[in-house]
Amino acid sequence: MNTFQYQGQEEDHYTNILMCILDYKNQLILPQFIKGLILKQASDFQFTSLSIHTRTKFCPQPHKLYEYVIGIAPYKSGITHSKLEDNSGSIPDAWICGDNFNLLFEFKIRGVLDEGQISAHKRLINKEDVQVIRLTWDNVMDSLEGIETDDAVLFYLLQNFLNLKNKFKSKRRSSGMPKEVISSVNKSNDLYFVITGSKVHKPYKVEKVFSGNKELIKDDLPGITAARKFIAQYVNQNKGSLPFDYQGDLTVINDYCVAPGRAEKKNSWNQWRLGAFLKS
């Protein structure tokens, strides 16, 4: 991990900074942080063989006696979800591992935790009785404030991170991503659909792309939602001839939204489940 490596998503960026601080000098303050965060659960933790991993889907070490999913957001209540909204491709923000424990961390800068995402994370630990611990950024900041260290660099880093407290408190859940969209991961190696258009460049068109081959399949749609409804119908009608894993309403569809004239880096990848638009 590199403290100064910028991460494009806010959660990723701040998670990277926090984990780098906790990883400093062979996890010098990590035991203090964990005990301050989850004192009751950590009472039997063995703080040896410590390691921190970010943006890693599966646990980097075997199952341990103590394993928890820890969700941190400005507000504890979660977004309700249905099976169609479970994010099976979700990647945890961080893992913190010790000699007899594994902790999966999910951070939200805005609003509340996504319960569909939490359900997906529970399956990664693969324990029927895995406990989910829901905390707020106040809990994180309180733990950091309670850390004692004589290391001048660590003290400086901690004070600077603590200055973010009010920023996290003021955040609200972003309304930019529709609830039907479950993630935003580049899937250019899989079957995907390009949706091209904008408010000033209508109508919208849809192209099917696989293995570098692009085919225009619709060019007279009024907007993104209409384009996704068309894609859902197209996939449902042609499921037998398309190169993807069809799972009924739970089938994950990949699209890439392009606005003519917009910088390419602002175009967006999106994943959604077939049933979210097939029945809408």
Score class of each variant (00 low, 15 high):
Q7V: 11
E11P: 04
D12Y: 05
T15V: 00
N16T: 06
M19S: 03
I21F: 12
Q32Y: 01
K35H: 12
F45G: 02
T48Q: 12
S51A: 11
T54R: 14
T56M: 07
T56C: 09
L65V: 03
Y66F: 15
I72K: 08
S77W: 13
S77L: 13
T80G: 11
E85K: 14
E85D: 10
D86K: 04
S88W: 12
S88H: 13
D93C: 08
W95Y: 05
D99W: 13
F101P: 02
F107D: 06
F107E: 05
G111T: 05
A120D: 07
K122P: 02
R123N: 11
I125D: 00
I125V: 09
K127Y: 10
K127H: 15
D129L: 04
D129Q: 15
T136K: 00
D138I: 09
M141V: 11
S143T: 12
L154A: 04
F155K: 08
L157F: 13
Q159P: 01
K165W: 07
K165L: 02
K165D: 07
F168L: 11
F168P: 01
S174N: 02
S175Q: 14
M177G: 04
E180R: 05
S188W: 13
D190W: 12
F193A: 12
V200P: 03
Y204G: 04
K205P: 07
V206C: 08
V206N: 05
F210I: 14
K214M: 11
I217V: 08
G223W: 06
I224F: 03
A226D: 00
A232Q: 09
V235Q: 07
K239P: 05
L242V: 02
P243D: 00
L250S: 08
D255Y: 10
S268F: 02
W269P: 03
W269L: 05
N270I: 14
N270M: 15
G275E: 02
G275N: 09
F277I: 04
L278D: 01
L278W: 00
L278H: 05
